[in-house]
Each structure stands twice: as C-alpha cells, then as structure tokens.
C-alpha cells in the first residue's frame, strides 16, 4: 500500500482551476519529486495535502486515513510535515525553540503540568531539548542552538525549517524548493541531506524543485504538473525523455504548433534537461 494516495484532487480559485484531477501515489521510503513550470499548481497541491486549502474534489489517503477535511494541525499529528518555498520560521525564537515548536504534537504536557512543573513535564522538556539538539546536529546546525532564527544565514534557515519539520517525527516530509537560492556546494549538501533523511530516518519525501540537477539526482519518481494537470510521471529518465514535459517547459516548437490557439509558454526557470 502506498504511503500517500491522492486521486482526482481538484482545487479551484474563482475561475481558475489551480489543481485539476491530480492523482499521485508515493511508496514508503522513496523520494518523489513534483516539477512543473511556475504557476503549474505544485505549491497549491502541497497546501491541499497539508490542509491549508480544502480541495473541491478528490480524495487523499495517507497511511489509509483520509486527509480532506482535517485541520493542518491534525494532519501534522498524523505524520506529514513540510517546509515553505519562502522561508517561514518563527523569527523571534531561537533555533532550538523552533525545533521544539516542531515537536509540539509529540509532547503532551498540560497547562497545569507547566504551572506546577511536574516531574513528567520536566522529563518531557528535557527529552525535547535533547531531541532538538540531535535534530539540529542531524541537519548540520550544531552550535547554532541559541541563535535567533531570523539572524541565521539563508541556507541555515532552510536547514532549520527541515529540522523543525523533523520535530514532529513525520512519515512524509514535503519540501517546497529546498535548494532555492543555494550555491552549488550548498545544493550538494542539501541533496545529501535529503538522501540521509530517507536512508537514516526512513522518511518518505515529496519535493518541489526547480533545480533539475537535484530532481534528477535524488528522485525515485518524478511527476510533472502543467496548468494544474499531471502530464507525466515516471523515473527521472522517463520524464526527461517525455516530449510533453519538454513542451511544457520550453513551449511548443513553431512547426509543432497544434493550432489549438495556445500561446507559446512562459520561460522555464531552469532548463530542465540537457539538449543532448
């Protein structure tokens, strides 16, 4: 049974169908990628998965549980965590505290317990701090525990978002453009980290990414969205060879114009595949 099974997911904004009958299945402990030109509906699809948007149609099963209709915090408790395209940390809190907020669903201390600082609460806090240290160490932020999040370097903020997401011990981690704005060596480290997430922690990963080196390097499975519809799916090599994908990114060639009135498409952010 796949960990995530989305079928016919549809999300409409006014007259715009941002996500149109998208099916997506992700097997456990794989790395899946979601690619497509800007505005293809990738982040909207993420928001449908995490409960920020309520899809108009379709069904999403996670680990056998339906997701549609649940609140974001309930979905997080089920085991889905995410990062954001434009980094959204809790800016005034330290790195350690950010990860501890990430552990919110894992902790159970009550208001009364916090007031009386009971033994159970203190134990839980101690374990949470320990775990936060481990997670920061894992993503490579050891030593930055007490730095206020907004003062971290850009790349480190991306790493902290991942550490915070790991706090809830997710089964599925959604990464929205984790390598955006990174230089080549940081991108290498990010790819290594994504692989380690799967291999060491056994986490299933779905990522949105424009950097095709990342996508082609780490993915077990690639799905391509265009105009809210899934136009291709398969291994990186299969997707790379698919003419519809090339068309979506580069626009139809002049002699291939199908005459359906479609204008040439927008420019790709990153050339998807080498011309060869």
């Amino acid at each position: 049974m796949p960990l995530l099974a989305a079928s016919h997911v549809t999300k409409v904004f006014g007259g715009l169908t941002a996500v149109n009958r998208v099916d997506l299945e992700i097997e456990k402990k794989t790395i899946a990628s979601l690619i497509g030109p800007n505005g293809a509906g990738k982040t909207t699809f993420f928001n449908c998965l995490t409960g920020l948007y309520k899809p108009e149609g379709g069904e999403i099963l996670f680990d056998g549980q339906p997701l549609i209709g649940r609140r974001p915090d309930q979905i997080t408790a089920l085991g889905i965590a995410r990062t954001y395209q434009n980094i959204r940390l809790f800016g005034t809190m330290t790195a350690l505290e950010n990860v501890m907020v990430g552990q919110h669903v894992e902790m159970h201390s009550t208001t009364l317990g916090a007031l009386l600082r009971t033994h159970a609460t203190r134990e839980e806090e101690r374990r949470a701090i320990e775990r936060a240290h481990e997670l920061l160490e894992f993503v490579g932020l050891g030593g930055e525990e007490d730095t206020v999040a907004r003062n971290l370097a850009y790349g480190d903020q991306r790493l902290l978002e991942i550490a915070r997401a790991l706090g809830s011990s997710p089964k599925l981690l959604l990464l929205d453009e984790p390598a955006a704005g990174m230089n080549p060596s940081e991108t290498e480290e990010m790819m290594a980290l994504v692989r380690r997430l799967r291999d060491k922690l056994g986490i299933t990963i779905l990522l949105i990414e424009h950097d095709m080196r990342v996508v082609m390097n780490v993915s077990d499975q690639v799905s391509v969205l265009d105009y809210g519809e899934k136009i291709a799916e398969g291994t990186p090599d299969e997707v790379r060879a698919n003419p519809r994908v090339v068309e979506a990114y580069l626009g139809p060639g002049v002699h291939e114009e199908s005459g359906d009135g479609r204008l040439p498409r927008r420019k790709p952010v990153t050339p998807p595949v080498s011309a060869a």
Binding site: L52, D73, T76, A81, F90, T92, R164
Partner: peptide, 14 residues
C-alpha cells in the same frame, strides 16, 4: 510565541 510570529505556519506545525 509561534502563533504570534506566524499563525498559519504555527497551525501547520501542529
């Protein structure tokens, strides 16, 4: 504090 900093993300964090 998380809610004060970013309400939506706080909710998505659980």
């Amino acid at each position: 504090t998380a809610m004060r900093d970013d309400e939506d993300v706080a909710q998505a964090t659980g």
